[in-house]
């Protein structure tokens, strides 16, 4: 019962802050609500025995990405009238599409079959050597290649960002 109550709390906060994020007039407010959202998601990860992910959710998302967003918003220094009209003309269509999405996804998810077989990483197995070590072992053995590719993607992103954002000097 207690876990369900906790989940209910987090779920309500997550959905609520999500709605707030997409409806705030000022993007800075949106980003701040996003921060609250990310913290709650990180807490949800803890429920699911993913301590490492919870940590990097806070560090990378909240610490790096959101700060980057704030930084860009301040850099652009938007005027107030820029934000007067929040929604586009076709917003009902967007809302309709989102609603249909919810209906469809729920319809699909209700058809999910219960697991045919379970993997070796039970809660006890993870706890015995620690979440970080478990993830690390798999990441650096079985998923070494995707991991390295990720580093290349990040490198490309760095270079791309520098090239794109650099002021042209004549």
């Amino acid at each position: 019962m207690l876990p369900k109550l906790f989940f209910a709390y987090f779920a309500v906060v997550i959905v609520g802050t999500s709605i707030l994020v997409i409806t705030r007039k000022n993007p800075i407010h949106s980003v701040l609500w996003m921060l609250v959202l990310f913290v709650h998601i990180a807490a949800l990860y803890l429920f699911l025995n993913a301590e490492f992910l919870a940590a990097i959710q806070i560090i990378i998302y909240a610490g790096a990405i959101l700060v980057l967003f704030l930084f860009v918003i301040m850099l652009l220094n938007l005027k107030r009238e820029e934000m007067e009209k929040r929604f586009q003309k076709q917003w009902p269509l967007g809302v309709f599409a989102g609603m249909v999405f919810i209906v469809f996804l729920v319809l699909i998810l209700s058809q999910i079959v219960v697991f045919p077989q379970l993997g070796p990483y039970s809660i006890q197995a993870i706890q015995s050597e620690g979440n970080l070590m478990t993830v690390g072992k798999v990441l650096y053995t079985e998923y070494l290649l995707p991991f390295e590719i990720t580093s290349v993607i990040l490198l490309v992103a760095i270079i791309g960002a520098v090239v794109l954002a650099k002021r042209k000097v004549n």
Binding site: P27, L44, F69, V72, F87, G94, L105
Partner: peptide, 27 residues
């Protein structure tokens, strides 16, 4: 969890489709 995920995803979709501000779209 899955339903929660679906709902948040759909809210993201709605946000992307309706907001004018490009930063919000990214968010």
């Amino acid at each position: 969890y899955i339903v929660l995920s679906a709902v948040v995803f759909s809210i993201g979709v709605i946000g992307f489709l309706t907001r004018r501000n490009l930063i919000i779209a990214f968010i």
